[in-house]
């Protein structure tokens, strides 16, 4: 089956991104396809590569990034939610003349239409809210 996930929770504050990750890993174990993981609301903070958890804690953004890289999964961050919260890629950073960008590898900024598209294309859309 084709699945997409929606993640709304900020990492390190809510469990939702951890639950989504466990669920996503199990989807692949069972041979399902993940069409897209969409980050909305405070979920966009999952894409912040500047997070520095203590050494004995998991780095949530790089965990997503390696998971996506190894399994060729699309991680899409809602651009409007992200810009409000200061999660920028190189082109948005230039456009708004900021001094840096901070989006983690394998995440891309795109519109909310990508969430609707995920709902249309996927057999199941599973939301992990906060």
């Amino acid at each position: 089956m084709i699945f997409s996930l929606a993640v709304y929770g900020s990492p390190y504050t809510y469990q939702s991104s951890d639950s989504a990750y466990q669920f996503a890993r199990e989807l692949l174990n069972q041979g399902h396809e993940i069409y897209r993981i969409f980050f909305y609301h405070d979920g966009v903070y999952n894409a912040n590569r500047l997070t520095i958890p203590p050494q004995d804690e998991i780095n949530i953004s790089s965990r997503w990034s390696s998971f996506a890289g190894e399994n060729n999964i699309e991680l899409v961050v809602c651009v409007a939610s992200a810009l409000r919260r200061g999660v920028l890629d190189d082109s948005e950073s230039r456009r708004y003349e900021k001094d840096t960008h901070n989006i983690e590898q394998n995440f891309t900024l795109s519109g909310l239409g990508q969430l609707i598209d995920a709902g249309i294309v996927s057999d199941r859309l599973v939301t992990f809210g906060s």
Binding site: M1, F23, H32, V126, T127, G129
Partner: peptide
């Protein structure tokens, strides 16, 4: 467990999340 969670999403028509 998570394996069962995934199976439930397959055997039901859709998932509605309450949070």
């Amino acid at each position: 467990d998570y394996a069962g969670f995934v199976e439930l999403t397959v055997t039901h028509d859709k998932v509605v999340s309450w949070f």
